[in-house]
Simulated scan of single mutants.
Amino acid sequence: MTGKPTLAHIAGLAGVSVPTVSKVLNGHRDVAASTREQVERIVAEEGYERPQRTAPRPRRSRAALLDLVINELDSSWATEILAGTEEVAREHGMHLVLTAVHKSPTPDKGWLESLTARGTRGVLLVLADLSARQRTELQRLSIPFVVVDALGRQDPASPSVGATNWHGGYSAVQHLVALGHRRIAVIGGPEQMMCTKARLAGYHAALEVAGIAPDPRLVRYGDFRHEQGYLHTKALLALPSPPTGIFAGSDLQALGAYQALHEHHLRVPDDVSVVGFDDLPFAPWTAPPLTTVRQPLREMGALATRMLISLIRGEQLTAPRAELATNLVVRGSTATVKRGQ
């Protein structure tokens, strides 16, 4: 190249980001040794003129902090994610700062200022999202983020972790089909969520393979909570031809289905089979034990945290997207359909 080498030129030769080169030049310690050595070698070879070092700013926090933004904290689902995240963070001497966004998909306006003030090193988004301004500001500050279970369609280059939701939906419905069920209802999560869309796509694929015509009246959308499973099951039972099998988009919605079926004096699985999704710790202890699709929530939280720590260190990820396998766990809530049903 002609003229003085730039940060972008050095980053291109080293195969790293401009912020990573800047961290090396400014003596930050959160860069892998191999990456640091490579950048230092190229800086020397290219004759890059280092900027005048200014006095370092005082650190705002002694602890290395990660921000975890999650849609809720009051369920076993959230507890499993947090367990995996906290374990990996603790192994690396880091602490978590929790923010629950509840009904809003994004943290409030004050979150970004608080995050900056406490010196957060990276962000985990669990069923949560950022505004365009928040994303831009994190990029400007060189604070990486990793998404767990994206709410909507993500930029393929954005680091994210999920599960094989399509396969999970397919295996749940295929299991019910194998037991002779033909009228199979599904109670999904929020319609716009990517995991819901993938599970519904698996549901429809299993019906198509079995030669079963889909009935739109058997497709319902909830919010993954107990009450929605209960209300939708009551509505399904009021149909002229109610389902003999129900695939719930979460174990909590499956419990709601249990309650509605009990109130209608129907037995699980003798009258209606039920399949959940998640395999939360209580699933084996329901009556009857719940057949469900296991989603490796703890492992998802752990993997997302490892990815985030790698990004903080200036390391490149093998791939920006990781999907962990789901598998069907058959217990006592599913059975062969009765004749005449």
Rank of each mutant, 00 (worst) to 15 (best):
Q259I: 05
M307S: 08
Q52K: 11
L96T: 10
S310E: 13
A178F: 03
T2G: 15
S114I: 02
H232L: 04
R339F: 08
L280S: 04
R53K: 14
E87R: 15
R294N: 02
V272T: 08
L236I: 07
G256K: 04
A14I: 01
G152V: 11
T336A: 15
P296V: 03
E37C: 06
Q174V: 06
V209E: 11
G222M: 00
F145S: 09
L239H: 04
Y221M: 01
K103G: 13
V39I: 14
L317V: 13
I184S: 01
S142K: 01
E80C: 00
A260P: 08
R298W: 03
Q154E: 15
E80A: 09
W77E: 02
V186S: 12
A100V: 15
T336L: 11
V293E: 03
A302Q: 03
T20I: 02
G152K: 14
P281T: 01
I312Q: 01
K4Q: 12
L200Y: 00
R153L: 08
H265I: 06
V274M: 04
T164D: 15
V16N: 02
V219L: 10
Y230T: 07
G110E: 12
L239E: 02
L112E: 00
V330H: 12
I70D: 07
I70P: 08
G27C: 05
G276V: 11
A14G: 01
L138W: 04
L130V: 04
A100N: 13
L261T: 02
Q253Y: 01
H226E: 13
P214R: 10
I312W: 03
L324Q: 08
V148I: 15
T2D: 13
T136V: 09
P296E: 03
